[in-house]
Each structure stands twice: as C-alpha cells, then as structure tokens.
C-alpha cells in the first residue's frame, strides 16, 4: 500500500501549493474576462507583456467566449470585461453591472465564401448579400450554405443583427429554415473549419480568419461594409454591485489602453504575424458619432 510517509509528503506539498497560490493573489492583480476573438489573435498577450512590465500589475486574462465572459462579469468574478457585442454592452450597463464603458478599437467582420462565389454576392452590400443567401438557400439551391456560430457570441450577435437589418425575423425566418443554415455552436476557429469543409458562407472576425487563412479554401467575399463593423469595448465592473472587484486597477488599465502608448500597440499589432494591422484604435471626436456611437475618452 501507499506509505503513510509519502501521503504525508504529498499533503504537505498541497498545503504549500495552496499557500503559494494564496500569496500570488496578494499582489496587485487585475482579472479580465475577454471574448475569444480578441485573445486568439495574440493581441492580449502582447498587451499583457507591455502592461505588466510598465506597472507591475498582474493581468489575469481568461478567454472563454462572449457568453461566458459576460456571465463571469455579471457574477463579479472578474474586474474588467473586454467585449464586442454592442447590444449586450448596453444591457450590461443599464443593469448597473458596469461602472465605466469605453470603446477602444474596431475592425470589420468578413463575409467569407467559396472562391467561385456560387451565390454571386461579391458586388452586393452585406445586407443585400444576406438577403440573397437566404433566398437561394431557402429555395433549395444545393451550392448555397451558410455556417453560423450559433453560440450567442459577439460574432453571432453581429450576424443576427444583419439578418434583422435585411428584414428577417431571425428565430422564425432564418434558424431552422432549412439544411442550408448550419449552426455549429462552436468557436470561430472550429466554425471556420466546418464552413471550409462544407464550402459554405460564414461571417468571421478578421483576426481568426487571418490566423486560419493558410488552412482555408474560403476567401473574403465582402469586407469593410459599414454593417460589418466590429467594435471592441472595455467595461469596468461596478464594485458597488459586486463586492471585492478591483475597479481602481481596472480603470488604470483602461486609461492606459486609451492612451497614446496603448493605441501604439493596437496600431502596430498584427503587422509581423498577419501582414496587416488587425485593429484600428478609436479616437476621440470620431467614436462619439455614427456608426460607433460610444465613449472613448479617459475615465476621470
């Protein structure tokens, strides 16, 4: 049998590990929940390095999909939320779960599809393209399929918004309207692979697309349409509602992200790995008006 001595030794290790993990928590630490599309590009690792070097604040970043990220924020398990889903941001703020809401960068979603473009949508607007995909898909055209994340992520919310703008009721007209509309319920990377295998159209964020580009046959069919705007925001969790959350360090981090130094990192990121910058920082004087309609000034 296992020697009591060994068991004792291992238990001693456990206690030490518990104490050490307890001590780590004592250092200034900022807990951040983020959507996967922001993390998967590698941007946050670069930000983490730069910020920890400058301030010594430990950034604890957990990236688990928008729905989970919002839930973590709503429960006060993190101090800061990084998100790209405007309707949910508004709901979060009006529920008073957030103290400050600042947008900091944007890029565009891409509508990807097979290079032959079987639905012939490349010269249409995003709304026009969605309407045509719906028409062809429903009529049973075997070459037209659409893959959806179907996971209520920020990207999925953006897709739902475009269906609505195109005049459809998402739940009754699009979901379950036929075999042409495929819901994966998975992350962006996995969904891209499904779309690629099925030669389908798909809405994707720029970062994940570029990361997967070499593995994909699909190409961007429509890009930089205003409807495809993808705005990223930071929300400081309200310590008044969630005891023990660290709004001071969260505020400092957001202000750094909005500073010239933060913008510099956002502007230059992606040039080496992807050949083109992935994010454009939002500037005061521009972010307040359409289509951004958000606040990007420093938090007082």
């Amino acid at each position: 049998m296992m020697k009591p001595k060994i068991v004792f030794l291992l238990l001693a290790c456990l206690v030490t590990a518990l104490l050490v993990s307890g001590c780590v928590q004592q250092k200034a630490a900022l807990r951040i929940a983020t959507t996967t599309s922001l993390y998967d590009t590698g941007l946050l690792e670069e930000i983490e390095r730069a910020y920890e070097e400058k301030t010594g604040t430990d950034l604890l970043i957990t990236s688990q999909g928008s729905g989970k990220a919002i839930e973590l924020a709503r429960r006060g398990d993190v101090d800061l939320l990084l998100i790209h889903s405007p309707p949910e941001e508004t709901a979060f703020m009006s529920a008073e779960d957030g103290l400050y809401h600042r947008c900091f960068a944007y890029n565009y979603f891409l509508l990807l599809g097979p290079p032959e473009d079987p639905a012939d949508i490349k010269n249409l607007t995003a709304i026009g393209a969605f309407a045509r995909l719906h028409q062809l898909g429903r009529s049973g055209n075997p070459d037209v399929r659409f893959v959806s994340r179907g996971d209520l992520s920020g990207t999925h919310h953006a897709e739902i918004r475009i269906w609505r703008s195109a005049g459809f009721n998402y739940t009754s007209d699009v979901q379950g309207s036929g075999r042409w509309y495929i819901e994966t319920g998975k992350g962006m990377g996995e969904s891209l692979q499904v779309a690629n295998e099925k030669d389908a159209y798909i809405l994707a964020d720029t970062g994940t697309y570029l990361a997967f580009r070499s593995k994909l046959r699909l190409v961007p069919v429509i890009a930089s349409d205003e409807e495809l705007l993808n705005r990223y925001s930071a929300i400081v969790i309200n310590p008044g509602r969630h005891q023990g959350t660290n709004d001071e360090d969260a505020k400092e981090f957001v202000n750094w992200l909005l500073s010239e130094e933060g913008k510099e990192i956002l502007t230059s990121f992606g040039g080496d790995a992807y050949g083109a910058p992935l994010f454009t920082p939002l500037e005061e004087g521009i972010c307040e008006s359409e289509p951004f309609s958000c606040t990007c000034s420093l938090i007082p």
């Binding site: 998967d40 604890l60 970043i61």
Partner: peptide, 26 residues
C-alpha cells in the same frame, strides 16, 4: 479545468486547456 481555472497564462494554464486554445487558434 477551463471553467474553474480559466486557462490564465502563467497561473492556471495546463496542458489540456493549452491544447484547447491552440486548436481554436489553428
């Protein structure tokens, strides 16, 4: 490990959560 640990780099990232992350990045 993903739900409770959060896959935080340098803190709670383990082999399986790292595999999951790297797979989702491609």
């Amino acid at each position: 490990a993903m739900i409770v640990g959060g896959n935080i780099r340098g803190q709670t990232r383990i082999l399986t959560t790292a595999i999951s992350l790297e797979t989702s990045i491609g």
